[in-house]
């Protein structure tokens, strides 16, 4: 059986650093398997957040050899094992312990976004009639598993720390899912413009690259939302029209 060395970030917000663990690995293993093996055999108190181990819950986000990924979906055969594999917590959120970060900011941001608000039902029994083609796009966005890797990699949050001015790709996708839902009747454009900081995104597409659900975050969610905001607030003809209305 082959062995591999994992260089894992240990410690808390006061004191932390890499620690090397060498362990046996076998065919088909993913990074989370190795972290669990190390936890069970060498470091019982190693902190790692995980739930489903099937790429469906988005709990085990980390930076593996510097790349933001889900630990449960990263197979060892996709990594060079002749050198140590580094596993670090996400950088964009406050560190709690070892591989676990405080992602509570995301939950606070979501609460502030105008909730789903249905229009009047189409049928007397309180249901709606909607074609599949019209829900394909919101369904793409609703694949999101809230792993927050897009937030982690977004330079507006990661490097510029503008958490109080910019809601990040996750919540632009969340807003887009409702804005493009044919049953929703609310208008979130003003809020996206005034409070969501949609203008800060300069479409570098880093978020799209790391999305484990392969949601086309930038092309399908952010750019169309930007266009709607621009139409509403920066279209000179529309502004003129508004003045005389």
């Amino acid at each position: 059986m082959a062995t591999a060395t994992f260089r894992i970030w240990r410690g808390d917000s006061k004191q932390a650093g890499f620690k090397d663990y060498t362990t046996e690995v076998s065919e088909g293993m993913v990074v989370l398997d190795v972290v669990h093996k190390i936890q069970a055999e060498q470091a019982n108190d190693l902190a790692v957040r995980w739930n489903c181990k099937a790429g469906k819950c988005g709990s085990c986000s980390a930076e593996i050899n510097g790349n933001p990924k889900l630990m449960c979906m990263t197979r060892l055969n996709s990594l060079p094992l002749d050198q140590p594999v580094t596993v670090e917590p996400m950088h964009t959120f406050p560190h709690i312990k070892d591989l676990v970060t405080d992602v509570s900011w995301n939950f606070r941001v979501k609460e502030k976004i105008q909730r789903f608000t249905p229009r009047k039902p189409d049928a007397p029994d309180g249901t709606w009639r909607v074609q599949q083609a019209d829900v394909d796009r919101p369904q793409e966005f609703r694949k999101c598993i809230e792993c927050f890797l897009c937030q982690d990699v977004c330079h507006i949050l990661r490097d510029h720390h503008m958490h109080d001015k910019f809601i990040g790709p996750r919540f632009l996708v969340y807003s887009a899912a409702m804005e493009m839902n044919p049953i929703d009747a609310a208008d979130r454009l003003k809020d996206l413009h005034d409070n969501g900081g949609i203008g800060y995104c300069n479409i570098t597409k880093c978020c799209t690259k790391v999305c484990p659900e392969e949601i086309k975050i930038t092309d399908n969610a952010i750019i169309p939302l930007k266009e709607r905001v621009v139409d509403e607030y920066y279209d000179p003809l529309r502004r003129l029209f508004k003045i005389f209305k």
């Binding site: 909730r115 789903f116 249901t127 599949q132 409702m178």
Partner: peptide
Amino acid sequence: VRELEAWGAVFDRTKDGRIL
């Protein structure tokens, strides 16, 4: 199930636009 739709769930659709 219908209540979930009123709360924002986006189900797959039948050809006549109902929940598949």
